[in-house]
């Protein structure tokens, strides 16, 4: 564990908690893409199946359980409890256009052709594009609530910090995983447009459609 990975995990956890609290406290999921949340729940489910097969550390296990729990709780709040506030008219990104190519790619480019490894690879590729429905929704509505921009900022920073973690691990441990690194770079690049607006606009972020 290094400072970049810890900061990244905490930023990721903060994003997940911010979103869950925002929906719970305001009793509304307006401006939130349910489709992105479904993709994140799918990412965690396919990546953390090793909860059943291997124990890394208490930290690792606890965080995985928290991530999966919060992801499904968020999907539940959006599609069940606060369904009436779900912005279905603007949340129209076709996620099958993400899942199918990512699924195909995970079969073609992976480290090992075993079920767990392919599912892990699928989750890595899917996570890199999972935020697209959310960014698409904001570009359609033309604005995002301040709390939503904080959520997106923390979510974007988490993978950027992981990039530094991989540099650190390559330098000190000789460890590197090209699949995770390339997907992480793509994922971080997708946030750049948002980061620019978040930093320059401060308040209401309006992503030009």
């Amino acid at each position: 564990m290094n400072i970049f990975r810890l900061a990244g995990d905490l930023s990721h956890l903060a994003a997940i908690i911010i979103l869950l609290l925002k929906i719970w406290k305001t009793r509304s999921c307006a401006g939130i893409s349910g489709k992105s949340q479904i993709l994140f729940a799918l990412v965690f489910t396919t990546r953390y199946l090793d909860l059943l097969t291997s124990f890394i550390s208490l930290y690792n296990t606890c965080m995985k359980i928290i991530y999966i729990g919060c992801a499904y709780a968020t999907v539940h709040l959006i599609y069940m409890k606060f369904k009436a506030t779900y912005d279905g008219n603007h949340d129209t990104f076709r996620i099958e256009f993400l899942i199918v190519p990512v699924g195909g790619l995970s079969f073609l480019v992976n480290h090992d052709f075993s079920p767990l490894e392919i599912l892990w690879t699928f989750s890595i590729y899917l996570e890199s594009v999972a935020i697209l429905p959310q960014l698409f929704l904001i570009s359609k509505t033309g604005e995002a609530e301040t709390i939503t921009t904080h959520y997106l900022f923390c979510l974007g920073v988490y993978r950027a910090l992981y990039l530094f973690n991989w540099i650190w691990r390559f330098y000190f441990e000789g460890f590197f995983d090209m699949i995770a690194i390339v997907a992480g770079v793509v994922q971080t690049i997708l946030y750049c447009d948002f980061f620019y607006l978040y930093v320059t606009k401060g308040e209401k972020v309006a992503i030009p459609s």
Partner: peptide, 10 residues
Amino acid sequence: QDHINPKDEL
């Protein structure tokens, strides 16, 4: 296989 990822990251 070099650089096997221990999957110790979240």
